[in-house]
Design a protein around this nucleic acid. Structure first.
Lengths: 342, 342
DNA sequence: TTGTAAGCGTTATCAT
DNA sequence: ATGATAACGCTTACAA
């Protein structure tokens, strides 16, 4: 067991018969120090591996160089959610390059309970990224109304900078494709729950834009589920079949996970995709391209979502800038695969 | 914008004309304080939402109540990896209940570069969880040889407590099932790269145990890939077909992701699963049950993996206990789905 | 160019 | 039962 002695700023100062003030200046590239000593100290520091204890540093600085990331436990969305995990990963990389780390905002630790805000205050968090949260959660509300800079990937928060996929544009991509390339008109929609603003937007855009294209969307072609699951997609398709005499030609499903359930139901009913009916998802989860048939879907630009959120948040923190648009839309992309066919 | 004044221990002390020492004792449940004042202070603190600044606290305590989590960037495994993300999520929950948080160990932040150990030291990290790392990474080596308690989910580290799935037992589950229930004998193996100890173990167990069951594993029935990907699985199957006159009856694939590639290749060759050939994976990724046909596979107990690692690490930190077995095996489970059939 | 010293908000020891 | 105070390791005016 190698027991490197833990060095402090005093050890470095002693070594050169300098004061800790001088060392501090050197470590932070501030003040005026002779190039000579600066060079020597820097070399030594590197050699022995001295790093300031961040707790001491942050205590006097009254900040942490750390961004809090909040998940809503209500939605039970954790790291396991592939979409959010990916967005966070990109966010993390971006802020790290700029000198920040991320920590997860937490409401209970041991038997200490916190509000989001209290936790952030007690950690001197510099800013927070609300990845998935509900705008009727009072804890979230308290947070976004505080003086801590916030940015979110969620839609519909008042007074918080949001970075979200352009759902309307994604839906238009789908409908234009159906209309212009697939040349189909009878289109159904299966959507996730309206408690999510993303699904709400997608549904609204679908209704409006399909009307604009004069597509035949019968009233009973629209099915709204009350959750996000495979199984619901499965059931939704069966319901759709039961209530219509004439099947749609294309089914748009506003989430890939649900789309897989739809595809399975179709398979079980021996309805061939894309020959008898075509299916289009939304998200482009990793499995979409590996499924058989591979799923045509809308790809959300996870990298751009995470990085843009990071960029705005860091600007908010550093420059106190606030003249951003409250809402930043990230373009989506249509990925054509096997569940549709020209 | 609500601007709650940031409270310190002095504010609380003033309020009651007590000294900060007394408040500190109350906050930490230490020392002797009259039940009366304790009650009053606790109530007030709760009401106004006072929490100690963790930087100040950790500075004097010389610890952080925080566990570092390390990913190997070499393997480029991030949060996006569904298996590890899930294990970490369970780990996180477990340690939080016991009063710890997690942070990601990081090697570069801004233009400061750290070794893993230096980062941990500078943050006063209490212990570290090596989720995926390579034992020939000198940074990892330095870390595990330090005085910071470590635990890993990786196989093959000397002198580090490892918590891993029982790969041998998983393989036995598969082969017993093939032998006793499926009643097949001609079995092939497609494995991920030998640079991963998990794949090495699975392959080794497969060879040994299939021999023990007197199965017919021809020499060219074993295919080792050099990566983890869908595409490699796809190619591997084609290779297998080309080099054997007689196809195996069952293909064991030591990772689900690769198995999906195999299934797709089979589909493209119009070889029906499970009628013509049967396929068994390893991992039970979320998509395994949603695929068509749904994949028979070995489920790794991600919850148990994360929680056991957490438990050992916390014991190491708190009790300085060290009398654990160096290696803890977590049982796996066979999940029978549609790619196999009695 | 360098040093001095106050202050950041706690915990813990020792008095009282 | 409570208070005074040193200590934790650092940054930053300000002084030399």
């Amino acid at each position: 067991m190698i027991m490197k002695k833990k060095l402090t700023i005093f050890d470095i100062a002693d070594k050169f018969n300098l004061s800790i003030g001088t060392i501090s200046k050197i470590m932070n590239g501030k003040g005026t120090v002779s190039p000579e000593t600066r060079k020597n100290v820097l070399e030594y520091v590197k050699e022995v591996g001295y790093f300031p204890i961040s707790n001491a540093r942050n205590l006097v600085l009254k900040r942490s160089y750390s961004i809090g990331v909040v998940f809503s436990e209500a939605l039970d969305i954790g790291l396991e959610h592939p979409f959010f995990a990916s967005v966070i990963q990109h966010f993390k990389k971006y802020v790290e390059i700029r000198g920040y780390e991320i920590s997860f905002v937490v409401r209970q630790i041991g038997d200490q309970k916190f509000t989001y805000l209290d936790w952030c205050r007690s950690r001197n968090i510099d800013g927070v990224y609300i990845v998935a949260g509900s705008f009727d959660d009072p804890g979230i509300l308290e947070l976004v109304n505080s003086n801590i800079p916030c940015v979110t990937t969620e839609i519909g928060f008042p007074n918080v900078h949001s970075v979200v996929s352009d759902n309307a544009q994604g839906i238009q991509l789908i409908l234009d494709y159906i209309h212009n390339d697939l040349k189909k008109e009878k289109v159904a929609l299966i959507s996730g729950p309206m408690s999510s603003n993303s699904f709400k937007e997608r549904t609204k855009s679908f209704i409006e834009y399909s009307k604009k294209l004069k597509m035949k969307v019968e009233d009973n072609y629209i099915e709204v589920l009350d959750n996000y699951e495979f199984k619901s997609g499965y059931n939704a398709l069966n319901k759709l079949i039961n209530k219509t005499d004439e099947m749609p030609q294309v089914i748009v499903v506003s989430s890939d996970d649900i789309a897989f359930g739809v595809l399975r139901a179709l398979f079980d009913k021996n309805i061939k995709v894309p020959d008898h009916i075509q299916v289009i998802g939304f998200d482009d989860v990793p499995y979409a391209e590996r499924a058989t048939p591979a799923l045509t879907t809308i790809r959300q630009n996870r990298k751009m979502l995470g990085e843009t959120a990071a960029e705005i948040l860091l600007d908010l923190i550093n420059d106190g800038k606030t003249d951003f648009a409250w809402l930043t839309h990230i373009e989506t992309e249509l990925i054509i695969r096997e569940t549709t066919l020209k």
